[in-house]
């Protein structure tokens, strides 16, 4: 079961690889709790999720995953500074309204942040825009008029944000179709996962 989760979400495997045994983890926008469940079973993490959807709250509680119902766009005032080893935001960054403020909150609450997002600069997305339409793909499955994604970005864009906001990138993992991308990632990568901390 655990293997199938990682297969379905290649960014989960990349995230899990960075989490040591017994770490404390806050998963923002934790969905149905699959990643936390996986990390609990394979890394014995002390984990909590934050989730807004009623249905996902039920899924998390059913799995026995700790979940706090709340809206990420209202900040993380319910969490103390430096209270987690890792704060994870998987495939949610692009759907947050106050993205800049949330990045700051991630690094207030966590010693490190891990973020994954669909790369808008992936060549297939660029092609669709070039041909005159907003891209639709496995990673971006929505029509422009019903998408929750309000802050899409490319790898370069995200790295620029980090540069200008005193965020130090520790590691980057770029994936397309489950395979690692080393060459020209901003063009050839469909999903990016970053590990970062406050620049000292």
């Amino acid at each position: 079961m655990n293997i199938s989760i990682v297969q379905a979400r290649p960014d989960f495997a990349a995230i899990a690889a960075w989490i040591p045994q017994g770490a404390s983890v806050l998963d923002l926008g934790c969905g149905d709790g699959a990643l936390l469940d996986y990390l609990k079973n394979t890394r014995q993490v002390r984990g909590y999720g934050v989730e807004i959807s009623d249905l996902n709250i039920l899924h998390c509680i059913e799995r026995g995953v700790n979940v706090i119902q709340g809206n990420l766009d209202e900040g993380l005032s319910g969490f103390e500074s430096n209270s987690f080893d890792f704060v994870i935001l998987s495939q949610t960054l692009q759907a947050t309204r106050h993205t800049e403020a949330l990045m700051k909150e991630i690094l207030r609450v966590g010693r490190e942040g891990i973020v994954s997002f669909p790369n808008f600069g992936y060549w297939k997305n660029r092609m669709q825009v070039l041909l005159g339409n907003m891209p639709i793909s496995r990673e971006l499955p929505y029509q422009w008029y019903d998408t929750p994604n309000v802050h899409l970005c490319t790898l370069d864009d995200f790295e620029n944000l980090c540069d200008t906001h005193e965020v130090r990138i520790l590691a980057r993992h770029v994936i397309t179709g489950g395979k690692d991308v080393e060459v020209m990632p901003n063009l050839r990568g469909s999903v990016a996962v970053y590990r970062f901390k406050r620049a000292e």
Binding site: D54, I57, I61, N66, I68, Q69, G70, G78, E80, S83
Partner: peptide
């Protein structure tokens, strides 16, 4: 949420649901 925050501080297992 005050209760939840105090439990988080003490690293207790806690889930929180806000019912509409």
């Amino acid at each position: 949420r005050e209760i939840v925050k105090a439990l988080l501080h003490n690293r207790r297992n806690v889930s929180y649901a806000e019912i509409q």
